[in-house]
Amino acid sequence: MPLAKRIIPCLDVTAGRVVKGVNFLELRDAGDPVEIARRYNEQGADELTFLDITASSDDRDLILHVIEAVASQVFIPLTVGGGVRKADDVRRLLNAGADKVSINTTAVSNPEVVEQAASRFGSQAIVVAIDAKATDATNSRWEVFTHGGRRPTGLDAVEWALKMQQLGAGEILLTSMDRDGTKIGFNLPLTQAVSDAVDIPVIASGGVGNLQHLVDGVKIGHADAVLAASIFHFGEYTVRQAKEAMQAAGIEMRL
């Protein structure tokens, strides 16, 4: 198929700066978001995702300036997530230059926000982020968590993804909490179960440690796109190397 699978570097942003987490313990300043976005753009990133992890609501508007600055210089799609509580938050991010806005906790606490945002701005602009964790060691059922993975919801991840599609989500960003930060690869049964169940694209996230993991996410997990942070931030691989490895494995890529 000519439609290429996508590689999406993810940047965590707090108070207007990109940070790198090391095992969730320490956050190190990793630099200027515009500069890092330009670097990934030059390496051939298909999209960029910004996750606003700003803790203080006073600093929330800083992400708008970051997106405006990036969108003025980098002409590929930009997704922004973190702290979206109402349809008006979506509007402000889109007006700043985001192409898509990702909704996570609010989708659970207030699903009509997804519906309102999709009908006001179009499904193509609404991503629902799902953080999921296996319910037991068989890794065959997965529960949705919110609040950065701290709060269980009792919701089944596959059913939840279908519900979000029905409410108008245009894409699912699926993160395996079991794998996030482990570097042992995506949770492939989870990725495949969600991707096969829905008609909308699924981005696999959580656990990437090497380039074969990206290949597996598409070939075994049936993901439409793969998201990674640390393998790119720490300079282990460039985005271009990742794309070349995927193409060598027979995956359609934009190179």
Partner: peptide
């Protein structure tokens, strides 16, 4: 061509 279903929206680089 591999029998994999194609998603809608048509999203990405073609």
């Amino acid at each position: 061509a591999q029998g994999q279903k194609l998603k809608v929206p048509h999203m990405g680089w073609n």
